[in-house]
């Protein structure tokens, strides 16, 4: 994850260093994903779609919390926003799905900019509470203001794309997210972002304009979340405030990243796979699933604050270190 290629860095066992190889692997993976709906049974396409959406949300949340130290409980506000903007544009402006998704990303950016002034004044825990309030306020707003169909919500009135097409949209969104995350976490920007996370005041003393850095991360994450929300809305064909602005959309990405590994490059993917798998196993007991998520959270925070990826990294390092010491 280090951005700087400094002299005689010991090669880390788990990272594939060469950028070319990385790009080739990533492109192949996305090509496979794009082709997947042709061969996969519908059930797996369905689950795959869910997984893709969760990975996008978790990547965005990891960018904010893991790299930027902005622990947000407001994912659902941008998710719901994207859903309503998308459905609104499809129904009333005759927008195609891609146009609508792009517009919801822009709406996410706009709201992020508007809210940033207030939210970024809050540090640490208070930022978290502020984002929670934002999500709740938006949900109440949508329920009460007459334009959004109240508690019943809205239906998509045009024909919907098939699940295979949606899966491909989700793949494209994930590709976009992966690209953005690669840029945001593997670039000079990531150095500044992590500096702000570690010590905002000290970062200021070396010239970092913390507000702008945080805003940039917040904008990127919000745009990704809003697009994911729009995509989910198109898939469902109907949206209502309790679903789209539901607390679960804030909880799930957080749980995924904490399970996978906060601030770890592959934390979102590993966590999402596990989370969706457990969710499918307990599909008939949704409350139990959420309760188990809560227990997992508490246990991981206490015993493995860097999640599964953190445990794996530590294990690999131990294995890598032992033989090296054995050598003379």
């Amino acid at each position: 994850m280090t951005v700087l290629t400094s002299q005689n860095t010991p090669q880390r066992a788990i990272s594939i260093r060469s950028p070319t190889i990385r790009i080739v692997i990533a492109c192949t993976a996305f090509a496979v994903l794009l082709a997947a709906p042709i061969v996969l049974p519908a059930y797996f396409v369905e689950i795959g779609f869910k997984l893709l959406i969760y990975i996008v949300l978790a990547e965005a949340w990891n960018l904010l919390a893991g790299y930027g130290g902005l622990v947000s409980l407001g994912t659902s506000s941008f998710f719901g926003l994207g859903a309503y903007v998308t459905v609104g544009l499809i129904n009333h402006a005759g927008a195609g799905p891609l146009q609508a998704l792009a517009a919801s990303a822009l709406a996410g950016i706009a709201v992020a900019i508007v809210m940033s002034r207030g939210l970024f004044r809050l540090r640490g825990l208070y930022f978290t509470v502020g984002t929670l309030a934002l999500a709740e306020a938006l949900r109440l707003f949508v329920i009460n203001v007459p334009w959004f169909g109240g508690a019943t919500g809205l239906f998509v009135t045009v024909d919907l794309p098939e699940i295979a097409a949606l899966f491909r949209y989700a793949t494209l969104l994930l590709a976009l997210a992966a690209l953005v995350m690669a840029l945001a976490t593997g670039s000079r920007f990531s150095v500044l972002l992590r500096a702000v996370r570690d010590d905002e005041d000290a970062a200021g003393q070396v010239g970092v304009r913390a507000f702008r850095i945080k805003l940039a991360a917040f904008i990127v994450a919000s745009a990704l979340i809003a697009s994911a929300g729009g995509l989910q809305a198109i898939k469902l064909g109907a949206i209502e405030p309790y679903g789209s602005f539901g607390l679960q959309w804030s909880v799930d990405p957080l749980a995924i990243v904490i399970i996978g590994g906060l601030g770890m490059r592959f934390g979102a993917i590993v966590g999402a796979v596990l989370f969706v798998a457990i969710g499918e196993l307990l599909a008939d007991y949704p409350e139990l699933h959420v309760a188990i998520t809560g227990v997992t959270l508490i246990l991981l925070i206490r015993f493995a604050p860097r999640g599964i990826c953190g445990l794996a990294e530590a294990a690999l390092r131990r294995r890598g270190a032992a033989p090296r010491e054995a050598r003379p």
């Binding site: 622990v71 409980l73 640490g124 825990l125 978290t128 909880v251 957080l254 904490i258 409350e287 139990l288 959420v290 309760a291 998520t293 809560g294 227990v295 997992t296 959270l297 508490i298 925070i301 206490r302 604050p305």
Partner: peptide
């Protein structure tokens, strides 16, 4: 000693456990 976030997130985990326990 593990920072305020750890306690807050633990209480958050508890909150979703309790919520769903109530439903169950």
């Amino acid at each position: 000693g593990k920072g305020p976030e750890a306690s807050m997130m633990t209480m958050f985990g508890l909150s979703i456990i309790l919520q769903n326990l109530f439903v169950l």
